[in-house]
């Protein structure tokens, strides 16, 4: 009987020890999962910050060009006009009107630039508006003509998703400008019930997408794919030589 008492007590204690070990093992697994999740969060934040910085840099470049090409030119012309008015003995009303018009144009251009610098406006603007603005800027160069289309009712996206998507689309535009020799780019927004699909098509020279390995994809395409997966979506690049390229980005709303 003594042995039975000892044995049962021993078995109970072994079971308790086993239970504690199970707890430790399971907690260790959970801890590693939590650590992994924290790392993913940190990476996401880092990528988001990087994206924001890239957009900012891109905006600064665009603004610099805008000031140089538009406002700068308008003001130079205005200076010439004022010099002529100054040298004239009688006031040329027509020239004065033209100078006034140029002051107005310069002011409008500056107001547009100031608006585009306002971060709140960027956050409040819809993705389509942001892309439209970007496409308009590209179209101004006269090299590429941009067209934007939308199907379905526009859905709200979180500002993080919007920024990441916008950066991906910008990346795609840059690729088109740099490598495609395209004359036309189409951006199509498909607002489906649970996801948004954006299709960017160009009529450029294209490439054999099947032969493009991940290494050769270059940082632009890789970034685009990584960014899309970060917000739970995916980006697919398909191209046929001499027949243009299509980039399809799919993002769930939730």
């Amino acid at each position: 009987m003594i042995y039975a008492i000892c044995l049962v007590t021993f078995v109970l204690l072994v079971l308790t020890t086993f239970m504690v070990f199970m707890l430790l093992w399971q907690r260790r697994r959970s801890n590693s999962f939590i650590l992994e999740r924290e790392i993913m969060k940190a990476l996401y934040k880092e990528q988001l910050l990087k994206t924001q910085l890239e957009i900012q840099e891109q905006s600064f470049n665009a603004i610099s060009m805008e000031i140089h090409d538009n406002v700068g030119q308008t003001l130079s012309l205005l200076k010439v006009q004022l010099n002529i008015i100054d040298q004239q003995k009688t006031l040329d009303k027509l020239l004065l009107a033209a100078a006034k018009e140029n002051v107005g144009k310069a002011m409008t251009d500056l107001r547009d630039i100031a608006k585009s610098l306002n971060s709140e406006r960027v956050q409040q603007a819809s993705l389509k508006d942001m892309v439209e603005h970007e496409l308009g800027r590209i179209s101004k160069t006269g090299i590429i003509r941009g067209l934007i289309q939308q199907e379905g009712d526009e859905q709200n996206l979180t500002s993080e998703k919007k920024l990441i998507l916008f950066r991906s689309i910008q990346e795609s535009f840059q690729n088109i400008i740099k490598h495609s020799d395209a004359s036309e780019v189409n951006v199509h927004f498909f607002y489906q019930p649970d996801q948004l699909t954006i299709v960017i098509t160009d009529d450029g020279k294209g490439f054999e997408s099947e032969h493009v390995t991940e290494k050769k994809q270059g940082l632009g395409l890789t970034n685009m794919i990584t960014r899309a997966s970060m917000v739970g979506g995916q980006a697919i690049v398909s191209s046929i030589k001499d027949k243009g390229t299509t980039v399809t980005i799919t993002i769930p709303y939730e």
Binding site: M1, I2, I5, T9, L12, L13, T16
Partner: peptide
């Protein structure tokens, strides 16, 4: 606390029998 409680559990279950006949 758990180890102590589990350890004495069986003994105390049969306390009167054990203390009178075995221990």
């Amino acid at each position: 606390i758990i180890v102590f409680a589990v350890g004495v559990l069986f003994y105390l279950c049969f306390f009167s029998y054990i203390i009178n006949d075995v221990d």
